[in-house]
Structure formats: C-alpha cells, structure tokens
C-alpha cells in the first residue's frame, strides 16, 4: 500500500488536493444559486461549472506533472 501511495501521491492520506473537490462543488452551487431562481437550472449550471473547474484543475495538474517529470 505504501508503495502504491508513493507512486500515486494524489492518493496519499490527507493530500490537500482532495479538499478542493468539495470546495469546488460548494463554489459552483452557491455561484449558480445566486445567478438563477429555478432549482433545475441551478443544478444543471452548477454541474457545468463544477466540471469546468475540475477540467482546468486537471489541466494545471497535468502541466505540473509534465514539468516535474524525472525530477
């Protein structure tokens, strides 16, 4: 298990990256709740915002992994 965690640091216990998921979810939901009144529209738009945030986070993570390759 330790070996697995050593090769996959994102899975390590209490890695701060995991805290960003609920944070992104809350930001998406509250932001879109302040934009619309209809519940269904709020959830659909919040889902899109959440996916967008995750996409950009993944892109940045990918860039950082590439930059740190073989370091």
């Amino acid at each position: 298990m330790d070996t697995l965690l050593a090769h996959a640091p994102l899975l390590a216990h209490a890695n701060v990256t995991w805290y960003l998921l609920p944070l992104a979810a809350v930001i998406s939901l509250v932001y879109n709740t302040s934009r619309y009144e209809d519940a269904q529209r709020i959830f659909v738009q919040a889902g899109r915002t959440f996916a967008t945030i995750l996409f950009f986070m993944a892109v940045i993570l990918g860039i950082l992994v590439l930059l740190s390759y073989n370091l």
Binding site: L23, V26, V30, Y31, T33, S34, R35, Y36, I42
Partner: peptide, 22 residues
C-alpha cells in the same frame, strides 16, 4: 471563501438572481 460566497448570497437577497429566473 465561505465569507466571499455569502456576499453573492447577500446580493441575491437584495437584488434577485443576477441572470434571471432560469
């Protein structure tokens, strides 16, 4: 961030939803 998000909530309470009903 919780504090900053509440500013959006206050705005919504004062002025209604920003983009429309939905």
């Amino acid at each position: 961030i919780a504090g900053l998000l509440n500013i959006l909530a206050v705005w919504d309470a004062v002025d209604g939803p920003a983009y429309g009903y939905g």
